[in-house]
Design a protein around this nucleic acid. Structure first.
Length: 583
RNA sequence: GCCGAUAUAGUUCAGUGGCAGAACACUACUUUCGUAAAGUAGGAACGUGGGUUCGAUUCCCACUCUCGGCUCCA
């Protein structure tokens, strides 16, 4: 088994090799940086004329040629002057050299064959011997901004896959192909869950009936859970006047991702991109006492965000989102227990859905950005961040803390998950807001008769329908548990003359609110079973002479195979029990 | 938004400067069948707008959508 450092060195050496091959084939190209990544390496270049993935085989061939001549890596320390002289035509390297110099670190060059690069080291001793020429593959070409900043020039990034052996590379490629099969975009079409239409617009999904059922079930779960937890449901309009977003302070921070306003009778109306201000207005609609707190206002609120065209991705990144939103208004003393209760709700949901692989990301502010990216309340930032951190530690929830990623109005905790093809997404969010209630002059009368401003917790444990269902499709690979399955049972008569009895069973299931479908097509049994399996339906019933004679049904399961004969009553109670258990 | 790629029936994929092909799905008929595809027939497509050409789905240009990334995000 190769150790991590060796694999890193292998990939890092290959990045050098890629740069060497590119420079040899395209001599006027400027090479920039080339780190290793999870499955290989990449290198960013500034090409004089653009290249495409059609050029990769040629580059790959050149790499293999050069590899034979690379018997060692020689490191050498250079002065700033020598380094700048060597890279005088490459402004990117000059920038890096200045940076290294600024940090008072050593400048080192590494040379293999004819190729020299600015590098801090970490290579194989003998690339020609230690790199298997068929265990790497140039994967794709992509654009990437210099230093990851969209204000900078766009460079051309070449990605490569690299492993110790060809077998590992092949296994990795195979595994990626398997993962693509559970891609929610593919399964979403196969299972008739959602669709896009050019006339409706990009990022605006149409939920087909099967998607509609999943949405209804999720909302039912949320409504029941929130009712028990003391939330109250509200409803708010989809548009609002500009003045509200000016008051909330959202407009300067959010204008880019809001749809342009509708001008009407001299006023500007915006499509809402968040529900918070509307809920704040509901808080303000009646005078509040400390006895009204905590006040928990919930709504599956639909919002519109004009995400950049290149950012759209299946159901995971869309322009219309229905959010499992709620705002909890509480006194400072109530904050910890409320925040804890919200966390517990998250964990309860994750248990229901069997979500185990996620990261809790605690995002805090950056004092340097106060007044710019974040509201200028240095003490409140520190105070609320401390409270959140303590709740996390006390609840023993593993988390990572990242600075400079908070919302503009307070710290937040995001739940990060990965899509089938490896993209990272925030599935759910839980945010503290100490700023906007003040801007809206939200107050309650405290015990001492004085007005006080409440804290606000924004929370959306089920995220948005779009992203959550996109995630669930991949999480279950389309094999939804019974309670979420659009079709729960398919009734399959063996021959046409069994249709009548099958229809009776079908009606019985429907009377019990079980989502059944009757397949009375003039087809043979094998073909009907096949279509039930392809649609990933959790249960089907086979009805033929045997069943009619015994007045029973034969139950079969997608996950557990043949379950034998049951009476109709047993069938209904078994299914209802499983639906109720949400297993 | 930026860099690169793609676009042919509902889906997966062929193909061509001169009448557009398959499989599955769909519809009808035949068949009446016990566990992942019965048979026959039929309807159904070259993303949009320009250009080159006697003629463009094919070549060129622009746009749009989608895909792979970057940036951003629930």
């Amino acid at each position: 088994m190769i150790n991590e450092e060796k694999l890193h060195n292998l990939r890092h050496s290959l990045a050098h090799l890629l740069a060497a091959a590119v420079i040899e084939l395209y001599p006027d190209t400027k090479n920039t940086i080339g780190p290793t990544i999870e499955d290989g390496f990449y290198y960013d270049f500034d090409f004089k004329s653009p290249i495409s993935d059609k050029d990769l085989p040629k580059i790959e061939k050149k790499m293999r040629e050069i590899l034979k001549t690379w018997k060692e890596f020689q490191g050498e320390e250079k002065s700033e002057k020598e380094a700048k002289e060597h890279f005088k035509k490459n402004e990117y390297k000059i920038e890096l050299i200045k940076e290294i110099e600024g940090k008072k670190e050593k400048i080192t060059f590494y040379k293999s064959g004819e190729f020299v690069d600015l590098c801090r080291g970490g290579h194989l001793e003998n690339p020609a011997k230690d790199i298997s020429p068929d265990a790497f593959k140039l994967d794709r070409v992509a654009g990437a901004y210099w230093r990851g900043d969209e204000k900078n020039k766009m460079l051309t990034r070449i990605y490569g896959l690299a492993f110790e052996t060809k077998e590992e590379l092949d296994a990795y490629i195979k595994q990626q192909e398997e993962a693509e099969k559970r891609d929610h975009r593919k399964l979403g079409a196969l299972l008739d869950i959602f669709e896009y239409d050019d006339d409706v617009g990009p990022g605006l999904p149409l939920w087909l009936p099967n998607g509609g059922i999943i949405i209804e079930e999720l909302e039912k779960l949320a409504k029941e859970t929130e009712f028990t937890a003391g939330y109250e449901r509200v409803r708010t309009p989809h548009i609002a006047k500009e003045s509200m977003y000016l008051k909330s302070g959202h407009l300067p921070y959010y204008k880019e991702s809001m749809y342009p306003p509708i001008e009407y009778e001299g006023g500007k109306y915006y499509l809402k991109a968040m529900n918070c201000p509307h809920h704040h207005k509901i808080f303000a609609a009646r005078p509040k006492s400390y006895r009204d707190l905590p006040l928990r206002l919930a709504e599956y609120g639909t919002v519109y965000r004009h995400e950049k065209s290149g950012e759209l991705f299946g159901l995971m990144r869309v322009r219309m989102l229905s959010m499992n939103d709620a705002h909890i208004y509480c006194a400072k003393e109530q904050f910890v227990s409320e925040f804890k209760a919200v966390n517990e709700m998250y964990l309860k949901y994750f248990k229901i859905f069997g979500i185990g692989k996620y990261v809790m990301r605690f995002s805090t502010h950056d004092p340097k950005e106060l007044g710019k990216k974040y509201v200028d309340e240095p003490e409140l930032w520190l105070e609320t961040e401390k409270m959140v951190r303590e709740v996390l530690i006390e609840s023993k929830i593993p988390y990572v803390e990242v600075a400079n990623e908070a919302a503009f109005y307070g710290p937040k905790i995001d739940v990060e998950v990965w899509s089938a093809i490896g993209k990272e997404f925030t599935l759910a969010t839980n945010q503290v807001d100490f700023a906007i209630p003040k801007r809206f002059n939200l107050v309650y009368t405290d015990k001492d008769g004085k007005p006080r401003t409440p804290l606000c917790i924004h929370r959306a444990p089920l995220g948005t329908h779009e992203r959550f269902i996109g995630f669930l499709i991949e999480h279950y690979a389309g094999n939804f548990p019974l309670w979420l399955s659009p079709v729960q049972v398919k009734v399959i008569p063996v021959r046409m003359n069994h249709n009548e009895y099958a229809k009776q069973v079908f009606e019985l299931l429907k009377e019990n609110n079980i989502r059944a479908e009757l397949d009375d097509a003039d087809e043979n049994l094998g073909s009907k079973v096949r279509s039930a399996k392809i649609s990933k339906i959790p249960y089907w019933l086979v009805i033929g002479d045997k069943e009619i004679t015994s007045d029973k049904v034969t139950l079969e399961s997608r996950d557990a195979g043949q379950l034998g004969q049951l009476s109709k009553e047993e069938l209904v109670s078994k299914l209802l029990e499983e639906i109720k258990s949400k297993k």
